[in-house]
Design a protein around this nucleic acid. Structure first.
Lengths: 177, 177
DNA sequence: CCGATCTTTAAGTATAGAATGAAATCATTC
DNA sequence: GAATGATTTCATTCTATACTTAAAGATCGG
């Protein structure tokens, strides 16, 4: 039994490492991903100290990463009455978690670029006014088009959990045919 | 006219910087994104020297980044007969470019993690065999489910350019209703 | 409100990944 | 096939960002 438990922890850790590795290649902070992986895969509530011990990270790092995870809405903080320590828990719905991450990253790292491109586009001479910039204008507009479609997908799939679920069902059904 | 040209270059540069900034927050090398942005938005063919001058980067960096962009299939190399220098050009179809980037990143940074998770899952005791690991197993399976749906989306939208186009049309039509 | 316990902040440090530059390789022309 | 010019490679250097540490700041039970 103790041995089994050890083996399970080893497997969990393997996953935590892999999740951290992948996430950091997508621009998500490694520690954040590792904490999230831990809470996600075990489904337990952990205190900050437990997280620190398990992942071998510093208190400051744990604190900042947990704050970010809470801001993203994928981790919640609890405190039992009469207790001093906070405990942290992940959403137990993988899809909801997935949708939240998508939403948050879009909001933080796609929308500002869309605005920037539109702003830059606004400084170009109007269509037909200056022939040498028309090609560039076209290309900018093509890019804006991509952002518009991303918005469309977002509105239709990631806006809330219900939409995500029905979008997935739809894709699944479509794929069967 | 010369002034106009200067202004246009300034606008292009602004975009190149923004594109580099955004891309690096998504785990894409900044120089790669900047070169791509330059070729993409101007639509011109550039020699390596022109790229080096325009972006102020080193020869080695330019060479490696261009190789990667070619591997991703979003930049092509040409040489005019009787010429010594290679010239580089981006795909002039924004959507095709977009699809290629998605494909490449999935193949390199999502598929290996999917395999790793399945591999790890294989080491867990079978369902019902060890009660303490059943919850963890469930959660792993939830994650695998996410990867399966990503595959499904990929098969139905990013497998080739035609599919991407019809997927977008479909989303657009759906959104109208 | 005091003291204990937990959390955050901010300044300094470490580290992974990106960029450089010079030597090696490759290609083209004469 | 030598000379010239272009490109690639890779060991080294640099830099952005993640992480640590220690001190300040909250919060809560008593």
């Amino acid at each position: 039994m103790a041995l089994e438990q050890e083996k399970l922890v080893a497997i969990e850790n393997q996953f935590i490492m892999e999740w951290g590795r992948m996430s950091s290649s997508w621009g998500i902070n490694r520690t954040m991903a590792q904490i999230h992986a831990l809470l996600l895969v075990t489904g337990d509530a952990y205190s900050m100290d437990e997280i620190i011990d398990r992942l071998g990270i510093s208190r400051g790092n744990a604190s900042m990463s947990l704050r970010d995870l809470m801001e993203w809405g994928v981790v919640q903080r609890f405190r039992r009455p009469g207790d001093r320590k906070d405990t942290y828990m992940a959403d137990d719905d993988m899809w909801s978690m997935f949708a939240k991450v998508i939403r948050e990253r879009k909001r933080r790292e796609l929308d500002p670029t869309k605005s920037a491109i539109k702003e830059i586009l606004g400084h170009l001479p109007a269509q037909g006014e200056a022939p040498e910039s028309d090609l560039v204008r076209n290309r900018f507009e093509g890019l804006v088009g991509i952002f518009e479609v991303i918005d469309l997908i977002y509105e239709n799939a990631f806006k809330n959990d219900d939409q995500l679920r029905s979008a997935i069902d739809f894709i699944r059904d479509n794929a069967k045919r």
